[in-house]
């Protein structure tokens, strides 16, 4: 039961983008080891600005 709740929480965090920075750090550690990662603030700014560049919502 606890595991299921935890899994549900992970889905909620993933869907809302709450864990975006953690995912970014993981991606960064895998692919771009040579440069330092962005700070939390800087990453979130970039992530949010990028998210609203196109058609994101419908009627």
């Amino acid at each position: 039961m606890l595991n299921k709740l935890k899994a549900f929480w992970r889905v909620v965090r993933r869907l809302s983008g709450d864990d975006a920075y953690e995912r970014y750090l993981r991606h960064h550690a895998e692919q771009h080891v040579d440069e330092p990662p962005l700070t939390r603030e800087a990453f979130f700014k970039q992530w949010q600005d990028g998210k609203w560049k196109g058609v994101k919502r419908c009627c």
């Binding site: 909620v12 809302s16 709450d18």
Partner: peptide
Amino acid sequence: RHFRAGKVL
């Protein structure tokens, strides 16, 4: 954006 950056939930 400022108070708790990225804490969407």
